[in-house]
Every structure is written in C-alpha cells, then in structure tokens.
Design a protein around this nucleic acid. Structure first.
Length: 708
DNA sequence: GCGATCAGTT
DNA sequence: CACAACTGATCGC
C-alpha cells in the first residue's frame, strides 16, 4: 500500500494520489490510476467543497483513468474538474494560487506504467528540477530505456528525485516471471481445460480491481472465448477491451464475482449462478492470479501451481520485481529516491540501503575518492553533491539549478516519503553498507509456491490430498552458486547501464565474493562485484538467462526448494525453461505425461498480450490500458523470443482433473536486450580490466571510452 | 446515518 | 508470501 502522503518535496503545490488533509490545498491534483489506495479522499465532502470553491483546481490523469473514474457514479461530481492528458505528451500546466495569484509553471508528462488500464507515471519538469512519481508500476527490464520522454537527446534526463513504487523492493522478490510467461501459462491451462468439452469452464478468481484486462483480452483472442464479467460499462468506450468481455454467462471463461464466490465455486457453481450447460453440469476449475516470486538463485518453477483438485494458482503481478525495480532506478539514476511503499516486514532504512547505491549522490559514498569514475558512466552534468544524506535536496539541488528554498517546510510532511534517510537512520546495522544487506538472505525463503502444493496447509482444504499429485515444480538448480549472482542483478544492471563499467566492483570484489552466498541484495554494485564472474562468464551459462533476455526464460522452471523436491508426487509438472533442459528431465515423477497440446501458436502473441491487442491498434486507450507500449512488444516479436514451445498436458484420470504439465520455453521473453545507452558499446572485459588498472594507477583514460 | 479506521478475510 | 477489496465492528461528527 502506498504510504506516499501526496506531495513531492520539489512541487508541493500539486498533490498526487492523495486527496485528504493538507492535500486539499493543492493547486492541482493528479491521479496515477484507479485503485482505491491511490484515491484516498477523492470523494470526500471536504474535497467536494474544495472544488465548489474553485474555478481552477483540476484533477489530471490519463484518458483511460478519467473514463474509469467517471463511470463510477460516486465520482461523477468530478466531471467538470477532470482534465485528461494524453500519454507521452508533455503538457504545461500553470499552478495558480487562487488567493495570492502566485503562479508556477510545470511541464508534466504521463508515461505508461504497466500496472493497470490507464496507469501512468508523472514526470514533472520545472524550476525545482525534474521529478518522476511512478505511482504503481510494472515495467520489464529495459523498459525505461525505451521511453523517449525520459530522455533528452540520447541521454536520460537529469532527474532530481524519483518517488518510487517499492512494493517488491526486497531481495526475496528478486524475480517475478514476466507477463508473457504468466500469460502463457494461464493460456495453456485454460486452453487445455476448455477444449475438453463445452461444459468445461474456467473461473478466473480475480480481485475486484483493474489490472486483469490484458489477461482477458489475450485469452479471448487466443481461444476465441469471451470472458464473462458482472458489468462492463466502464469499458464502453474502450473497444479493444469491450470486444473480449461479455455479460453473457454462456461462455467458458468467467471472471464474474459474487460476495460468496468461493462458496459458489465449492458448490460447483459459478459466481454468476451458472451450474450447467444445456442440462449438463459444468466442470469448473478456478484459477487464482497471485504473485509468485523467486529469489535470485531459485528462479525456476512453474507459473501455474495446482492447489487443489479443481483449483490452480497462476502467477500474476501488477508490480515490478526487485530486479526490475533496480534496473529501472539504476537507469534513471536520480539524485534522490523516495520509496512510496514499504514491503511488509521491511524498514525504510533497509529499502534505502538498496536504493541509494543506485542514485547519483550515493555512488560517491561507495567510492568517495574516485569521483572521476563517475564521469565515466554518464556524461551528465552531475554535480557532486555530497551530502548524501540529509539534505537531499537542498544542497544538491541548489547547486544544480536555482531552486526554491521554500519547501523545506514542506518536507514537513515527510511522513510520506521518508526521507530522512539517514537522518534517523539507524542505519547501521550493517555498517558496511553492502554487506549489510546481505543479510536479507533469507534466501531460502524465497520460494513460495511449492509449499502449497505439498502441504497445502492453507488454502483449500478440501482437495488437498488429491493435489498432492499435482503440484510441482521444484527443482533446483545445481550450480547456482556463483553464477547466480552474476546473472542476477548484475547483469541486469549492467545491461541497463549500457555496460558501464563498474568501478566499485572492481575494487570491492573480494569482499563481495565472500558474501556471495547471499548476494542478492547486495547493492548493485556489489553484484557487479561478482562481475568477475562476469568476465569469466563461464558459469554464466548455467543460467543463461541473463544474457539475453532473460527473464523470461527463467521463469518457469523449477524451483529448487530443497525441501521436497520433486519426488513428491507430482504428476503434473511443468517446467519450462531451458534451463530445464539442462536438467535432466528424468524426474521421478510418477506418471507419464502425455503431450496433449501441440504447440501453441508460436508467435502469436504474447506480445500482444499486453499491449495492444494486435488487431487493433487503436492508439487510445490502450496504451494506457495496457500499460506497455507497443514498442516493446514489437521488439519482442522481432527478437522472436517469445514463444511457447510446447505444452504437455497430462490428464490424469478422468478428464476432470487435468494435471497439466506445461513446458515452456524459456525463451519467451519478456525482455529483450536493449542497449540502454544508445551509443555505448559493450566494454570488452579485457579492456575493462585495463581501464580499471589505469584508473587505479591514476592514469588518464578518458579518451577511450566515453560513454555517451 | 455517513464516513473514517481497523481487523479479519479473500 | 502479496495485492486490492470487501466485510464488519467501532468511533466520531
């Protein structure tokens, strides 16, 4: 949940995603997306009064968000006070204080956030610097690099502060399967079930919130089956969504809800009341989208987990994973970063320990003396602000540009973002910065899923036993060791940074190494540390993932989980990924698996999944709607990375309980490689080494590689 | 009675 | 596990 209090330090005259208390005095309001936790106070009487007493106060949001908001009668009163701003279109807004007449201009740009229909990030540019408020977002690795408006010429804009969605900013959420992978897993499961007969239907147990639309669209497009919903008037002006959903209950895919929908399901009834088709009882399975994550080392596993005789859990995430967050932030490389969310059980200090190393001023901290290095990386004008800490802005900002002193007070409300990073800081724990982090380690914990399968403690009671057979995955990856590290963050980051050499690592490797065990969290740099391996790369292979794109690949596979390994009874299993190939499949599984589905349409589409439905390219809503830009999609297509290779489905006994085994190729991808820095070329390991040596010796190397 | 908050559920 | 919502109880205006 967002703990952002509504205002940024730089532009306190605007309130974003919070409309209560002091925010009522804002000169302009911004709404990043239509989820309740970002709409606090939006329909309160205090705000209504505020609107009545003003001619100028407006609420700015994307066209899709406006549509979704106004469709709800409770927000109808906003009708004459909302201004929809086109996505990716810089717009100047004058912030006028109606009592004093004071005016301040800012240019705001909406950037697609990939969180739910209409979700955007807000980029503010004005006298107090450039500020990015991300709202909630899910952007794959490299996505920031593709956003033109985050750049100025070939470089990333000089961003003063980023107010970041840190929902999964904890090493335990290191990897979350890509949208493509998740979508394909669900698609194949739904396909295998619904193809058995007209009475085999699927209930998508989705939460009452926007964000699943791209799933519905894709299932409908691929299978030709519309998705049943309770109502769809909110999409009346969004044809690309509307044509894939229906209020007709006679369909095989349902996403309808009922207050007691779980009970309905247990009684073999759909939430909408359907129980049979032409007199024949329905065979219903439920698929519950939920977040599944994997620690750095264990990135394998299926994106679908069977949790009961007729129940499945499918991986689905509205937020970026830890590695995606780090990739995003390190690419932006702002002077300051403020977390909008604190992951459960994580303190602000801990989050800041992770984020600060990815910001400009901090780099200094890590290697104070070698400032020159910094220049190596980015040509920006960076100034050295030093104080990393406290004054986040002041000193630095000032140096950079004329900034207004005023706000300090503003900060007063710091609650929201926390800020004071250190001030309060307790920091300490770890002292050694990096290492400290390591602790998180709970590596082992990362896993997740499997448990359910085995024990099933929780959820579904009923069926447990049967299930056992089902679930699966798990596997472990043998070597993971060092490699993993490397792949993980490190590579990402590097990629994102356009292969910028990492000086720190060069010098810190050793230590890092030691800690390697837990590395996940090590600050990026640290990861990089692993870089040695980078060079050697040998191991890298094991996971190959990183290199190219990766993530997708991993996703699916197995997970380690030492605990129960596969032996358990899984009949199903699914694996995926290449890696798997590496492993031998011989798993002790019990039953044979019959390949049922042939290949899926290969290319078809994953891409479209998100973005725009292929067929239609109507620009509008969807950018917002889907969040992702088509560009990305296309790119994926080009790479040809994303495909589902084959799927195996095992139908265990009767048709009713299909165990599915899906095997997917890892290559699917979600990410493609993208050179982040346009002109940069990948440094050759040897060269890098040389460079570092020179640098260490104080020699000049500039001419050589000037990045960007 | 409405709204905000909190705990518990899903 | 988490998210985003919903439900119900409590408290205050």
């Amino acid at each position: 949940m967002s703990r952002f209090a509504g205002r940024t330090r730089e532009y306190p005259a605007v309130s974003i995603d919070r409309f209560d208390r002091d925010n009522l005095r804002a000169r302009a309001f911004f709404l990043s997306h239509c989820h309740k936790d970002h709409m606090k106070g939006l329909r309160a009487t205090a705000l209504k009064r505020r609107l009545e007493g003003s001619l100028k106060v407006k609420l700015y949001c994307s066209p899709v968000t406006k549509e979704l908001l106004l469709t709800n009668w409770k927000y109808k009163f906003w009708e004459n006070h909302i201004v929809a701003l086109e996505v990716e279109t810089p717009t100047q807004i004058s912030l006028i204080d109606e009592t004093s007449g004071e005016k301040e201009d800012v240019v705001v740009t909406l950037l697609p956030a990939g969180h739910c229909p209409g979700s955007v990030m807000f980029l503010f540019e004005g006298e107090n610097g450039t500020v990015l408020y991300t709202g909630d977002f899910r952007l794959a690795k490299g996505e920031a690099a593709r956003m033109e408006l985050l750049h100025s010429g070939t470089r990333v804009k000089d961003i003063q502060s980023v107010y970041l969605d840190t929902t999964f900013c904890d090493p335990k959420f290191y990897h979350i399967p890509s949208r493509e992978e998740c979508l394909n897993g669900i698609l194949e499961l739904v396909r295998s079930w619904t193809s058995l007969s007209r009475t085999h239907v699927v209930w998508l147990n989705c939460k009452a919130a926007y964000g699943y639309e791209y799933l519905f669209i894709n299932l409908s497009e691929e299978l030709g089956i519309k998705v049943h919903m309770n109502k769809l008037d909110m999409f009346r002006n969004m044809p690309e969504i509307l044509c894939h959903v229906t209020t007709d209950q006679h369909t095989q895919i349902h996403a309808c809800r009922h207050p007691r929908d779980e009970d309905c399901f247990r009684g073999n009834r759909l939430p909408c009341g359907m129980t049979c088709f032409n007199g024949t009882p329905l065979h219903i399975i439920s698929i519950k989208p939920s977040t599944m994550w994997f620690g750095e080392r264990k990135k394998k596993t299926s994106v679908i987990v069977r949790t009961g005789e007729r129940t499945y859990r499918a991986c689905f995430s509205f937020h970026s994973s830890y590695s995606e967050i780090k990739d995003f932030l390190s690419y932006i490389c702002p002077v300051n970063v403020y977390p909008n969310v604190l992951p459960v059980g994580v303190t602000e200090d801990k989050v800041m320990e992770i984020l600060k190393p990815l910001c400009r001023s901090n780099r200094r901290i890590m290697e104070p003396r070698y400032k020159p290095l910094g220049t190596l990386k980015r040509a920006h004008k960076r100034e050295l602000s030093d104080t990393d800490e406290d004054d986040l802005f002041d000193s630095e900002l000032i140096s950079i540009r004329p900034k207004i002193a005023k706000q300090q007070g503003g900060e007063g409300r710091p609650s929201s973002t926390g800020l004071s990073e250190n001030s309060e800081g307790n920091v300490n724990e770890s002292t050694g910065s990096c290492k400290g982090t390591t602790t998180y380690t709970s590596l082992k914990v990362d896993f997740v899923d499997c448990e359910e399968s085995n024990d099933d403690d929780d959820d579904e009671d009923d069926e447990e036993e049967s299930e056992k057979n089902t679930v699966q995955f798990v596997s472990r990856e043998p070597d993971a060791t060092s490699t993993a590290t490397f792949n993980g963050v490190t590579s990402d980051q590097q990629e994102s940074n356009a292969n910028i050499p990492c000086w720190d690592e060069f010098f810190t490797v050793n230590k890092l190494e030691e800690s390697s065990e837990n590395e996940d969290n090590i600050p990026s740099s640290a990861d990089a540390g692993g870089s040695q391996s980078l060079f050697s790369d040998s191991d890298g292979l094991s996971d190959s993932t990183h290199i190219s794109s990766q993530n997708s690949s991993q996703s699916t596979h197995i997970s380690e989980q030492g605990s129960q390994g596969w032996d358990s009874q899984m009949d199903t299993v699914l694996i995926t990924s290449q890696e798997r190939s590496a492993l031998d499949l011989s798993r002790g599984g019990s039953r044979a698996v019959a390949p049922v589905l042939q290949e899926s349409p290969k290319d078809t589409q994953l891409d479209s999944s998100w973005g725009k439905p292929p067929g239609q390219n109507r620009p509008c809503a969807h950018d917002g709607a889907c969040g992702l830009k088509s560009k990305g999609c296309e790119k994926a297509a080009e790479d040809g990375t994303a495909h589902v290779q084959d799927v195996l489905v095992e139908i265990s006994d009767d048709s009713r309980t299909p165990d599915l085994e899906l095997r997917r190729d890892s290559q699917s991808s979600s990410d493609f490689e993208i050179p982040l820095t346009p002109d940069a070329e990948a440094p050759h390991p040897d060269k890098l080494h040389l460079l570092y040596k020179k640098l260490a010796a104080g020699e000049n190397i500039i001419s050589e590689k000037k990045v960007s």
